[in-house]
Design a binder for these strands. Structure first.
Length: 746
DNA sequence: AGGAAGTGTCATGAT
DNA sequence: TGATCATGACACTTC
């Protein structure tokens, strides 16, 4: 059954591929959003499409990372995955996004340091590596975008190669320390809203752990202690014991990102992405930037120094530009997937591909063949031995000068008709209407084909010019790995092993109760962040901070938890904190506490069944307690399973999305090739027509007068011979030949 | 206020 | 047979 479903799913995919290739728009989202129950059944069916058995094989993934779903290492893990995705996305021409992220991350710690006042143009003391990237004067660095999303971006794993190249771990730590110092000084605390909330949760978590579970996770306590030691040792400052936890986690995450990027990114050691910067520069026209400005990438933002208009708008513009660039490079993908309006001004203003007619951009060098070596059998010996028709309507071809005719066509051959040696437009495009045109039908057909092709391309959102550019970019030596097998297939193969395991052997790494195992939306967030900087606030790392689904938590408590004023913190007694923690607890935790369950929910949920039973046997538990414990275990496991399931579902959708992108890319390439072939064919036909004209013009009747093109026409016979026949007969035969292919099509 | 998105939970079937 | 997992469906929370 499973294999059957898998077969159906794969078949469906192949069908989708075929549909895509033949020009039928394939909108995966439509199929996945339940409009079509049978398809949905097949795709989202209970055990087919989303069943990925390797998901349990977490330990084999990501360089041997063994991450428990509830482990705090999952942050690193997802950061690394985001990074990997970004790196992999390089072959999908989304490098500019990576570039921008890199820039922001560079500025992140320092921008945060002085960024206490939003939208102020404070000057920053910039460190060495950062200056190179951002340019000498860019007050925009302190834009609220940067401030507001700095931590988010850092967490995104958007680590720049320049950083990795220039900054050591000590540098990063120093930046982190400086940043923290300013946070302690009260600078721009509100800027780090999410981080702040993260810290709050860390506080709560640690407090709770300390109060209830001190003996349960010694590893975590030691870890927290180590983090504190690290901070204190380097800053010389005494931090609140709870605060550095989350930040160090962030710092570690950044470090991990650096390491990973260095290991994976082909330009990990380079300071810039020349091709991408230039491409972005091209994509951003008419921004009043000095011509000598090195970092054109930032031009839309850099102009903010001279005009204090909405920086966020600029940011969005930049994002839009990059998105449009990615859209154009990815041909119609974006139109299908992102529903970009066709008349989007950005797409026209910042279009990479000039809206030139297709013929001007099609490279013909592939269609050019060398000179023809064989004689043109059509006119060589056969010409002289043309059978003289006895019929009066079939006049013999009487060349006025057979030798000259031979010399004229001797250098040509039949192959030359179809593979012209020169395709530089020497063919006579202006065949006079008075001339017989046995090729007219074919030419018209070719033109129609091309026109229909163009229509198709337009309909499908495929611009062959863009496809051509895409292909050129593919061929270009940009240093990007463009192996298409890199993206979806290998991605899924590697991601297939991504851990959805609830392997309880990793219990040591577990966080306190309520730790969020996965961030199912990580990819989505990464993608969303390209579109709208405000989405950056929804970073997976911080998501669980803003999202509190503790049902019994009063809104007022939530409010106070989100942004507690300093006074509250000072006044906050242990009672209030306990109350807050109490409200933070899940329902099952409350129940467990009410039932006086002698061990943590975490153990209940994650212990292997043997250890779990062993644990139960150690205590004298009532039936109600046992029942609750089993319920807690069931719910906890199911909760993780649901998270896995959603994550898998999202991954599947994203992989399908990427598959469709790749298929559309292939389709664009094939379309481009088709256009090239059509153009080549048309030029060959033009060549034949010019030769026809030349031959016909040299023909003379018995009286030495040229034949009238309106009355006579040359006809190529199947055996290579050429006959001069009356025009009416030629037209009839031409019509007959026209019908044949049409009939064949039917 | 209403919708979208995220999340937890239950029921059910499969392994 | 029990444990576990996967997933659809639903309810709830948050934004």
């Amino acid at each position: 059954m499973l294999s059957l479903k898998k077969y159906l799913t794969e078949g469906l995919l192949q069908f989708t591929i075929l549909l895509s290739l033949i020009g039928v728009r394939v909108d995966v989202d439509t199929y996945l959003t339940s409009q079509l129950p049978p398809l949905r059944e097949i795709i989202l069916g209970p055990s087919s499409a989303y069943t990925q058995t390797q998901f349990h094989n977490l330990r084999n993934t990501l360089d041997g990372y063994g991450i428990h779903p509830k482990s705090i290492d999952l942050d690193n893990y997802f950061t690394a995955r985001r990074l990997l995705n970004q790196v992999r996305a390089l072959d999908r021409f989304q490098v500019p996004t990576t570039e921008v992220n890199a820039w922001l991350v560079h500025r992140d710690p320092e921008g945060s340091v002085s960024g206490s006042q939003p939208s102020s143009g404070l000057a920053l003391e910039s460190s060495s590596g950062l200056q190179d990237v951002t340019g000498p004067d860019n007050g925009v660095r302190e834009s609220e975008t940067e401030q507001g999303f700095s931590e988010d971006l850092e967490d995104l794993g958007a680590v720049a190669p320049p950083v990795s190249g220039d900054l050591t771990k000590e540098d990063i730590d120093l930046i982190d320390i400086l940043w923290r110092q300013d946070i302690d000084l009260g600078a721009g605390r509100e800027i780090f809203d999410y981080s702040h909330r993260q810290k709050e949760q860390d506080v709560d978590k640690e407090l709770r752990d300390g109060a209830e579970q001190e003996d349960t996770w010694p590893g975590e306590g030691a870890e927290a202690l180590a983090r504190n030691l690290l901070v204190d040792g380097e800053t010389g400052e005494s931090f609140p014991a709870q605060v550095p936890g989350g930040e160090d986690q962030t710092a570690l995450s950044l470090e991990e990102c650096l390491r990973l990027l260095e290991a994976t990114c082909p330009f990990g050691e380079n300071a810039e992405f020349p091709a991408d910067i230039s491409s972005i520069t091209e994509a951003v026209p008419s921004e009043s930037e000095p011509p000598g400005l090195q970092n054109n990438l930032l031009s839309p933002l850099l102009t903010g120094t001279e005009s204090p208009f909405d920086l966020e708008q600029q940011w969005q513009d930049l994002m839009s530009i990059m998105e449009m660039q990615a859209m154009e490079v990815n041909t119609s993908t974006s139109e299908v997937l992102y529903n970009a309006p066709p008349g989007d001004p950005l797409s026209t203003n910042y279009s990479l591909a000039p809206n030139t007619p297709i013929n001007q951009n099609v490279s013909l060098h592939q269609a050019s063949l060398g000179g023809c070596s064989q004689d043109f059998s059509l006119f060589s010996p056969e010409v002289e031995s043309l059978p003289v028709a006895s019929s009066s309507t079939l006049l013999p071809l009487v060349p006025s000068n057979s030798t000259s005719l031979n010399s004229t066509f001797g250098s040509t051959n039949l192959a030359g008709l179809f593979f012209p040696p020169q395709l530089n437009g020497t063919a006579n495009d202006t065949a006079g209407p008075e001339l017989p045109d046995p090729l007219g039908g074919l030419l018209d057909e070719a033109m129609l084909d091309e026109i229909s092709l163009m229509d198709l391309a337009i309909e499908e959102g495929f611009n062959p010019v863009q496809a051509s550019q895409l292909e050129e970019e593919f061929d270009s030596d940009s240093g990007l790995s463009l192996d298409s097998s890199h993206s979806p297939s290998s991605l899924s193969s590697s991601e297939g092993a991504v851990g959805y395991s609830s392997d309880s052997e990793t219990l040591d790494l577990e966080e306190a109760e309520g730790a969020v195992g996965y961030q199912p939306e990580y990819s989505k967030f990464c993608r969303m962040s390209y579109q709208d900087p405000s989405q950056l606030s929804c970073l997976p790392y911080l998501e669980h901070v803003g999202h509190n689904h503790t049902y019994n938590m009063a809104p007022s408590a939530l409010d106070s938890a989100d942004l507690p004023p300093p006074s509250t913190l000072k006044k906050g007694s242990k009672e209030k904190q306990a109350d807050f923690l109490d409200k933070q607890m899940s329902r099952d935790e409350h129940r467990a506490r009410a039932m006086k369950i002698p061990f943590t929910n975490d153990k209940i949920i994650n212990l292997p069944v043997e250890e779990f039973n062993e644990l139960l046997s150690k205590y004298q538990l009532s039936e109600a307690q046992l029942s609750l414990i089993r319920d807690i275990r069931r719910r906890g496991k199911n909760k993780m399973a649901a998270q896995n399931c959603r994550k898998r579902k999202l991954d599947t959708i994203l992989n399908l999305e990427r598959d469709v992108e790749d298929l559309q890319r292939d389709k664009a390439r094939l379309l481009r090739e088709k256009v090239e072939f059509l153009r080549s064919l048309r030029q060959m036909k033009q060549k034949v027509q010019s030769l026809y004209q030349e031959v016909f013009g040299r023909l003379r009747d018995e009286n030495g007068r040229p034949y009238s093109p309106s009355q006579y026409a040359l006809q190529y016979a199947g055996d290579g011979s050429v006959l001069l026949i009356p025009r009416t007969l030629a037209d009839q035969q031409a019509r007959r030949q026209e019908r044949k292919p049409k009939d064949r099509r039917k």
